[in-house]
Protein backbone atom coordinates (compact mmCIF):
# COMPACT_ATOMS: atom_id res chain seq x y z
CA UNK A 1 0.00 0.00 0.00
CA UNK A 2 2.82 2.40 0.74
CA UNK A 3 3.63 3.62 -2.74
CA UNK A 4 6.49 5.80 -1.55
CA UNK A 5 8.89 2.97 -0.74
CA UNK A 6 12.06 2.85 -2.80
CA UNK A 7 11.38 6.18 -4.46
CA UNK A 8 14.06 8.82 -4.27
CA UNK A 9 12.64 11.52 -6.47
CA UNK A 10 9.40 10.76 -8.30
CA UNK A 11 9.47 12.12 -11.86
CA UNK A 12 5.83 11.25 -12.32
CA UNK A 13 3.54 11.55 -9.37
CA UNK A 14 -0.20 11.01 -9.46
CA UNK A 15 -2.07 12.12 -6.35
CA UNK A 16 -5.66 10.86 -6.07
CA UNK A 17 -6.15 11.37 -9.78
CA UNK A 18 -9.77 11.19 -10.93
CA UNK A 19 -11.19 11.30 -14.43
CA UNK A 20 -14.82 11.25 -15.53
CA UNK A 21 -16.15 10.54 -19.00
CA UNK A 22 -19.69 11.80 -18.61
CA UNK A 23 -21.06 9.64 -15.78
CA UNK A 24 -18.40 7.00 -16.17
CA UNK A 25 -15.64 7.16 -13.56
CA UNK A 26 -12.58 6.14 -15.56
CA UNK A 27 -10.12 6.95 -12.78
CA UNK A 28 -10.76 7.25 -9.05
CA UNK A 29 -8.12 8.23 -6.49
CA UNK A 30 -5.23 6.88 -8.51
CA UNK A 31 -1.94 7.55 -6.77
CA UNK A 32 1.12 6.28 -8.57
CA UNK A 33 4.71 7.48 -8.19
CA UNK A 34 7.43 6.67 -10.65
CA UNK A 35 11.06 7.38 -9.83
CA UNK A 36 13.67 8.41 -12.34
CA UNK A 37 15.08 5.37 -14.13
CA UNK A 38 12.27 3.16 -12.92
CA UNK A 39 10.23 0.83 -15.14
CA UNK A 40 6.63 0.52 -14.01
CA UNK A 41 4.18 -1.80 -15.71
CA UNK A 42 0.46 -1.16 -15.30
CA UNK A 43 -1.67 -4.25 -15.77
CA UNK A 44 -5.37 -4.86 -15.41
CA UNK A 45 -8.49 -5.86 -17.31
CA UNK A 46 -9.70 -3.68 -20.20
CA UNK A 47 -11.64 -0.69 -18.99
CA UNK A 48 -9.63 -0.56 -15.77
CA UNK A 49 -8.35 2.97 -16.54
CA UNK A 50 -4.71 2.12 -17.15
CA UNK A 51 -4.64 3.68 -20.63
CA UNK A 52 -6.59 6.71 -19.39
CA UNK A 53 -4.00 7.29 -16.67
CA UNK A 54 -1.23 7.23 -19.29
CA UNK A 55 -3.14 9.69 -21.48
CA UNK A 56 -3.60 12.03 -18.51
CA UNK A 57 0.17 12.17 -17.99
CA UNK A 58 0.74 13.62 -21.46
CA UNK A 59 -2.51 15.60 -21.40
CA UNK A 60 -4.37 13.83 -24.16
CA UNK A 61 -6.99 13.80 -21.39
CA UNK A 62 -7.47 16.40 -18.66
CA UNK A 63 -7.91 15.15 -15.10
CA UNK A 64 -10.95 16.10 -12.99
CA UNK A 65 -9.66 15.37 -9.47
CA UNK A 66 -6.43 15.21 -7.57
CA UNK A 67 -3.19 16.31 -9.14
CA UNK A 68 -0.54 15.02 -11.49
CA UNK A 69 3.06 16.10 -11.22
CA UNK A 70 5.63 15.64 -13.95
CA UNK A 71 9.27 16.50 -13.41
CA UNK A 72 8.37 18.83 -10.55
CA UNK A 73 5.64 20.69 -12.43
CA UNK A 74 1.89 20.52 -11.98
CA UNK A 75 0.52 18.98 -15.18
CA UNK A 76 -1.92 21.16 -17.14
CA UNK A 77 -2.35 24.01 -14.65
CA UNK A 78 -0.52 26.90 -13.09
CA UNK A 79 -0.93 27.15 -9.33
CA UNK A 80 -1.76 30.60 -7.97
CA UNK A 81 -2.59 30.49 -4.27
CA UNK A 82 -5.92 28.69 -4.04
CA UNK A 83 -6.58 29.15 -7.74
CA UNK A 84 -5.52 27.15 -10.76
CA UNK A 85 -5.18 28.53 -14.28
CA UNK A 86 -5.33 26.14 -17.24
CA UNK A 87 -2.03 26.32 -19.11
CA UNK A 88 -2.00 27.89 -22.58
CA UNK A 89 -1.47 25.52 -25.51
CA UNK A 90 2.20 26.40 -25.89
CA UNK A 91 2.86 25.49 -22.24
CA UNK A 92 0.94 22.23 -22.60
CA UNK A 93 3.04 21.41 -25.66
CA UNK A 94 6.20 22.18 -23.67
CA UNK A 95 5.15 19.85 -20.83
CA UNK A 96 4.30 17.12 -23.33
CA UNK A 97 7.85 17.20 -24.64
CA UNK A 98 9.00 15.70 -21.34
CA UNK A 99 7.17 12.51 -22.28
CA UNK A 100 7.38 10.26 -25.30
CA UNK A 101 4.26 8.30 -26.18
CA UNK A 102 4.03 4.99 -28.01
CA UNK A 103 0.50 4.14 -29.11
CA UNK A 104 -1.22 0.81 -29.43
CA UNK A 105 -2.02 1.55 -33.10
CA UNK A 106 1.45 3.06 -33.82
CA UNK A 107 -0.05 6.27 -35.31
CA UNK A 108 2.92 6.83 -37.59
CA UNK A 109 2.47 9.67 -40.07
CA UNK A 110 1.53 7.72 -43.22
CA UNK A 111 2.60 10.47 -45.65
CA UNK A 112 6.17 10.44 -44.37
CA UNK A 113 8.96 7.87 -44.58
CA UNK A 114 10.25 6.21 -41.42
CA UNK A 115 13.13 8.70 -41.37
CA UNK A 116 10.84 11.70 -41.84
CA UNK A 117 8.61 10.41 -39.05
CA UNK A 118 11.58 10.49 -36.71
CA UNK A 119 12.98 13.87 -37.83
CA UNK A 120 9.60 15.64 -37.83
CA UNK A 121 9.54 16.43 -34.10
CA UNK A 122 13.17 17.55 -33.76
CA UNK A 123 12.94 19.80 -36.85
CA UNK A 124 9.46 21.28 -36.38
CA UNK A 125 9.26 21.37 -32.58
CA UNK A 126 12.82 21.54 -31.27
CA UNK A 127 14.09 23.64 -34.17
CA UNK A 128 17.01 21.33 -34.94
CA UNK A 129 18.68 21.65 -38.32
CA UNK A 130 17.55 19.06 -40.83
CA UNK A 131 21.07 17.69 -41.16
CA UNK A 132 21.52 17.22 -37.41
CA UNK A 133 18.03 15.75 -37.00
CA UNK A 134 18.60 13.33 -39.88
CA UNK A 135 21.89 12.11 -38.47
CA UNK A 136 20.30 11.55 -35.08
CA UNK A 137 17.23 9.87 -36.65
CA UNK A 138 19.43 7.44 -38.58
CA UNK A 139 21.22 6.53 -35.36
CA UNK A 140 17.88 6.01 -33.59
CA UNK A 141 16.53 3.85 -36.42
CA UNK A 142 19.72 1.79 -36.27
CA UNK A 143 19.22 1.42 -32.53
CA UNK A 144 15.77 -0.11 -33.07
CA UNK A 145 17.13 -2.29 -35.85
CA UNK A 146 15.66 -0.42 -38.81
CA UNK A 147 18.70 1.22 -40.41
CA UNK A 148 17.74 -0.26 -43.79
CA UNK A 149 14.10 0.88 -43.60
CA UNK A 150 14.73 4.62 -43.25
CA UNK A 151 13.20 5.46 -46.63
CA UNK A 152 10.20 3.13 -46.41
CA UNK A 153 6.70 4.46 -45.95
CA UNK A 154 4.73 3.03 -43.00
CA UNK A 155 2.44 1.06 -45.32
CA UNK A 156 5.47 -0.95 -46.48
CA UNK A 157 6.56 -1.82 -42.92
CA UNK A 158 5.32 -4.71 -40.81
CA UNK A 159 3.48 -3.93 -37.57
CA UNK A 160 6.59 -4.63 -35.54
CA UNK A 161 8.70 -2.37 -37.74
CA UNK A 162 6.08 0.39 -37.51
CA UNK A 163 6.04 0.17 -33.74
CA UNK A 164 9.82 0.26 -33.55
CA UNK A 165 9.78 3.35 -35.80
CA UNK A 166 7.23 4.88 -33.44
CA UNK A 167 9.58 4.22 -30.51
CA UNK A 168 12.41 5.92 -32.42
CA UNK A 169 10.10 8.87 -33.16
CA UNK A 170 9.30 9.27 -29.47
CA UNK A 171 12.96 8.92 -28.42
CA UNK A 172 13.98 11.61 -30.92
CA UNK A 173 12.39 14.22 -28.64
CA UNK A 174 14.75 13.24 -25.78
CA UNK A 175 11.89 12.60 -23.36
CA UNK A 176 12.40 12.16 -19.65
CA UNK A 177 9.71 9.50 -19.45
CA UNK A 178 8.55 7.04 -22.08
CA UNK A 179 4.87 6.08 -22.01
CA UNK A 180 3.85 2.85 -23.72
CA UNK A 181 0.14 2.24 -24.30
CA UNK A 182 -0.27 -1.48 -24.97
CA UNK A 183 2.54 -1.33 -27.53
CA UNK A 184 2.24 -4.97 -28.62
CA UNK A 185 -1.53 -5.48 -28.50
CA UNK A 186 -2.04 -4.73 -32.20
CA UNK A 187 0.82 -6.94 -33.36
CA UNK A 188 0.83 -10.42 -34.83
CA UNK A 189 2.20 -12.81 -32.18
CA UNK A 190 5.47 -13.45 -34.00
CA UNK A 191 6.23 -9.69 -34.10
CA UNK A 192 5.74 -9.03 -30.39
CA UNK A 193 9.23 -10.19 -29.45
CA UNK A 194 11.12 -7.66 -31.60
CA UNK A 195 9.25 -4.73 -30.02
CA UNK A 196 9.69 -6.06 -26.49
CA UNK A 197 13.41 -6.54 -27.19
CA UNK A 198 13.77 -2.85 -28.09
CA UNK A 199 11.88 -1.90 -24.93
CA UNK A 200 14.12 -4.14 -22.80
CA UNK A 201 17.18 -2.41 -24.25
CA UNK A 202 15.70 0.94 -23.35
CA UNK A 203 15.01 -0.19 -19.80
CA UNK A 204 18.54 -1.50 -19.46
CA UNK A 205 19.90 1.87 -20.56
CA UNK A 206 18.08 3.48 -17.64
CA UNK A 207 15.10 5.07 -19.41
CA UNK A 208 12.15 5.84 -17.15
CA UNK A 209 9.23 3.89 -18.55
CA UNK A 210 5.55 3.49 -17.77
CA UNK A 211 4.19 0.55 -19.70
CA UNK A 212 0.53 -0.39 -19.96
CA UNK A 213 0.69 -3.98 -21.10
CA UNK A 214 -0.81 -7.43 -21.16
CA UNK A 215 2.62 -9.01 -21.55
CA UNK A 216 3.07 -10.47 -18.07
CA UNK A 217 6.33 -12.13 -19.03
CA UNK A 218 7.77 -8.75 -20.01
CA UNK A 219 6.48 -7.19 -16.77
CA UNK A 220 8.06 -9.92 -14.69
CA UNK A 221 11.39 -9.66 -16.47
CA UNK A 222 11.78 -5.91 -16.92
CA UNK A 223 9.53 -4.01 -14.52
CA UNK A 224 10.85 -2.71 -11.22
CA UNK A 225 7.28 -2.46 -10.01
CA UNK A 226 3.90 -3.63 -11.26
CA UNK A 227 0.67 -1.77 -10.63
CA UNK A 228 -2.58 -3.69 -10.88
CA UNK A 229 -5.61 -1.54 -11.71
CA UNK A 230 -9.28 -2.46 -11.84
CA UNK A 231 -12.38 -0.29 -12.31
CA UNK A 232 -10.41 2.93 -12.31
CA UNK A 233 -8.55 2.21 -9.06
CA UNK A 234 -5.13 1.00 -8.09
CA UNK A 235 -5.78 -2.37 -6.43
CA UNK A 236 -2.26 -3.43 -5.66
CA UNK A 237 1.30 -2.26 -6.24
CA UNK A 238 4.47 -4.18 -5.69
CA UNK A 239 7.72 -5.54 -7.00
CA UNK A 240 7.04 -7.52 -10.17
CA UNK A 241 7.83 -10.94 -8.73
CA UNK A 242 5.97 -10.30 -5.45
CA UNK A 243 2.80 -9.06 -7.08
CA UNK A 244 2.68 -11.76 -9.71
CA UNK A 245 3.71 -14.75 -7.59
CA UNK A 246 2.03 -13.76 -4.35
CA UNK A 247 -0.74 -11.27 -5.02
CA UNK A 248 -2.35 -10.00 -1.83
CA UNK A 249 -5.70 -9.02 -3.29
CA UNK A 250 -8.40 -11.37 -4.48
CA UNK A 251 -9.03 -9.33 -7.63
CA UNK A 252 -5.36 -9.46 -8.58
CA UNK A 253 -5.35 -13.22 -8.13
CA UNK A 254 -8.46 -13.59 -10.30
CA UNK A 255 -7.01 -11.42 -13.05
CA UNK A 256 -3.67 -13.21 -13.10
CA UNK A 257 -5.44 -16.56 -13.19
CA UNK A 258 -7.71 -15.52 -16.08
CA UNK A 259 -4.80 -14.12 -18.09
CA UNK A 260 -2.52 -17.10 -17.55
CA UNK A 261 -5.24 -19.31 -19.04
CA UNK A 262 -4.45 -17.82 -22.42
CA UNK A 263 -0.71 -18.41 -22.21
Amino acid sequence: MNTMTAIDRPIVSGRNVGKLFGDFRALADVSIDVAEGEVVCIIGPSGSGKTTFLRCINQLERIDNGALWLDGELVGFRLDGDRIHPLPDAEIARQRRKTGMVFQRFNLFPHMTALQNVTEGPVQVLGESRAAATARARALLARVGLADKADSYPKDLSGGQQQRTAIARALAMNPKVMLFDEPTSALDPELVGEVLAVMKDLAREGMTMIVVTHELGFAREVADRVVFMDQGRVVETGAAADLMDAPKEERTRNFLRSVSHKD
Partner: peptide, 30 residues
Protein backbone atom coordinates in the same frame (compact mmCIF):
# COMPACT_ATOMS: atom_id res chain seq x y z
CA UNK B 1 -7.85 12.14 -40.90
CA UNK B 2 -7.65 9.65 -38.05
CA UNK B 3 -7.82 11.06 -34.50
CA UNK B 4 -4.64 9.14 -33.73
CA UNK B 5 -2.78 11.45 -36.11
CA UNK B 6 -3.72 14.55 -34.07
CA UNK B 7 -2.73 12.71 -30.91
CA UNK B 8 0.60 11.52 -32.31
CA UNK B 9 1.36 15.09 -33.39
CA UNK B 10 0.48 16.44 -29.94
CA UNK B 11 2.48 13.68 -28.29
CA UNK B 12 5.69 14.88 -29.96
CA UNK B 13 4.96 18.34 -28.59
CA UNK B 14 3.51 19.97 -31.71
CA UNK B 15 1.24 22.95 -31.30
CA UNK B 16 -2.13 23.04 -33.02
CA UNK B 17 -1.02 25.05 -36.06
CA UNK B 18 2.11 23.02 -36.70
CA UNK B 19 0.18 19.76 -36.48
CA UNK B 20 -2.44 21.15 -38.85
CA UNK B 21 0.15 22.32 -41.37
CA UNK B 22 2.54 19.39 -41.19
CA UNK B 23 0.42 16.37 -40.29
CA UNK B 24 -3.30 16.85 -40.78
CA UNK B 25 -3.68 19.07 -43.85
CA UNK B 26 -1.22 17.09 -46.02
CA UNK B 27 -3.24 13.95 -45.29
CA UNK B 28 -6.53 15.74 -45.79
CA UNK B 29 -5.27 16.97 -49.20
CA UNK B 30 -5.30 13.41 -50.49
Amino acid sequence: VDRGQYEAAQAIGMGYWTSLRRIVLPQAMR
